[in-house]
Computed example of a mutant assay.
Amino acid sequence: MSQPQIGIIMGSKSDLDVMQDAADVLKELGVPYEITVVSAHRTPDRMFKYAKEAHGRGIKVIIAGAGGAAHLPGMVASLTHLPVIGVPVKSSNSIDGWDSILSILQMPNGIPVATVALNAAKNAGLLAAQIIATANENITQNLIAYKESLAQKVEESAREMQSGI
């Protein structure tokens, strides 16, 4: 892949099972990305450096996944002008994921974080691709084809069910 345009970060390697979905859909759509662990609590200096240097490396959107207190998306958003998409992750110490969801949703005015559903990293990848597609016709066409394939799957399912009735 060429120069990464999307940064996928997560608070812990244990979040990779969820966050891999973002990487997979970006790869499918032909969007170059990077993926790494950046903990707001355990490596705050790494988080500061990542957020402050992302734009200079060509990153256009950051997807940040975190469980529990889930401070990573908001803290990164406070340090960069880039759009940040938060993925609440249901972690082992989570309160059914609600703690993560509410931590990411309840950002103060002036520090927006787009938030997807619990464990919905695929949607975060799609949203990031849609943002990039506003200035990239190839990615636009890939997204159109992707959405058409979703519609085709529904039509196929409907035909299968109707023929079985």
Rank of each mutant, 00 (worst) to 15 (best):
M10C: 12
H55M: 11
D45Y: 13
S39K: 05
L29V: 06
L16F: 15
M19G: 07
V38W: 04
D17S: 13
A23T: 07
A51R: 07
M19N: 12
M10R: 10
D24H: 09
K49L: 04
E34Y: 00
V31I: 10
R57Y: 12
T43R: 12
A40N: 01
D17P: 01
R42E: 09
D45S: 09
G30D: 04
G56I: 05
A54W: 09
D15P: 00
R42Q: 09
F48H: 04
E53T: 14
A54S: 14
V18Y: 14
V25G: 04
D17W: 06
K13N: 15
R46K: 14
H55V: 15
I9Y: 05
I35H: 01
Q20N: 07
E28H: 07
D45K: 11
D17H: 14
L29R: 14
L26W: 02
A40Y: 06
M10L: 13
A22C: 12
Y33T: 04
D45E: 10
R46P: 00
K52A: 05
H41S: 01
S12C: 08
Q20G: 00
I35Y: 01
P32L: 06
M47W: 05
S14T: 12
Q20T: 07
M47A: 10
L29P: 11
S39A: 04
V25P: 00
H41V: 09
F48D: 00
P44A: 13
Q20L: 06
D24V: 11
D21W: 03
D21A: 15
K49M: 04
Q20K: 11
K52G: 00
A51P: 02
M47I: 08
A23L: 08
L16E: 13
Q20F: 01
E34N: 09
E53Y: 03
A23P: 13
V31Y: 08
S14I: 08
V37D: 01
V31R: 11
Q20I: 14
F48P: 00
A22H: 09
A51T: 15
A40Q: 01
A54E: 07
P44W: 06
I35A: 09
G30H: 10
E53C: 09
M19F: 07
K49F: 04
V37Q: 02
S14Y: 06
V18M: 12
R57K: 15
I9R: 08
H41P: 00
H55G: 12
A22T: 13
K13G: 13
M10H: 10
M19L: 13
H55Q: 14
H55C: 01
D24L: 10
K27A: 12
G11H: 03
V31M: 10
S39M: 05
A54R: 08
V25M: 03
L16C: 01
K27R: 14
T36K: 15
A40V: 05
D45T: 13
E34M: 07
I9N: 05
D24I: 08
L16V: 15
H55Y: 08
I35R: 03
V18S: 14
